[in-house]
């Protein structure tokens, strides 16, 4: 029934974010020319936390924004109309930067496909990377993450929820449903 199982707690999430921040800086060979773009709602807060972690490591402020992908979704006509979230891109644009897309859960990959299309309309980044807190598998498109907080093998009937203090009051990652 409604048996939520906690798979990551607050400290686990903080450690994962710190590690992802290290990996991003290492792979980019420094924090310059980076732009973190969170996908609303929770990706935006994760992007901000990763940016703060990079600042703590490198002492440099990394720009951070939000990218709403609602208008690029491929399932718009399968649901009633969705409200739009905010998009905020630095005024200097995305050209020539290494973009790190940040989302909470990677599942089918369709959100990321939409995000890549949205980025395409915004300019021409030098590279696009993907950071997610949880990769739960079941990809429907040839998309893979570059930085993963936790790989979480799930069944399709299960439901993964990421809760963050900024919106939900406390940090945790839970799995619901799927029986036993």
């Amino acid at each position: 029934m409604d048996s939520a199982r906690v798979v990551l707690d607050e400290a686990d999430i903080a450690r994962a974010i710190r590690r992802i921040a290290h990996e991003i800086v290492e792979k980019a060979k420094g924090p310059e020319a980076l732009l973190l773009l969170g996908i609303p709602t929770r990706g935006v807060f994760l992007a901000q936390r990763i940016a703060d972690a990079i600042t703590a490591i490198e002492g440099v402020q990394v720009p951070c924004g939000a990218l709403d992908i609602t208008l690029y979704r491929d399932d718009l006509r399968l649901r009633t109309v969705r409200a739009l979230e905010s998009t905020s891109i630095p005024t200097s644009g995305v050209d020539g930067l290494t973009i790190v897309l940040v989302d909470d859960v990677l599942f089918s990959g369709r959100t990321i496909r939409a995000a890549l299309d949205a980025l395409n309309d915004l300019g021409r980044p030098a590279a696009v990377r993907l950071a997610v807190l949880v990769d739960r598998g079941h990809r429907e498109l040839p998309i893979r993450p570059d930085y993963v907080g936790k790989n979480l093998p799930t069944s399709l009937v299960e439901n993964v929820r990421v809760l963050l203090a900024e919106v939900d009051g406390a940090d945790s990652v839970e799995i619901n449903g799927g029986g036993s």
Partner: peptide, 20 residues
Amino acid sequence: LDTAAQLAEVTDRSVKKLPT
């Protein structure tokens, strides 16, 4: 009005087009 405020940002971009 909120939706219009989000869509207004498209006007400031170089590609003023959405596939929606």
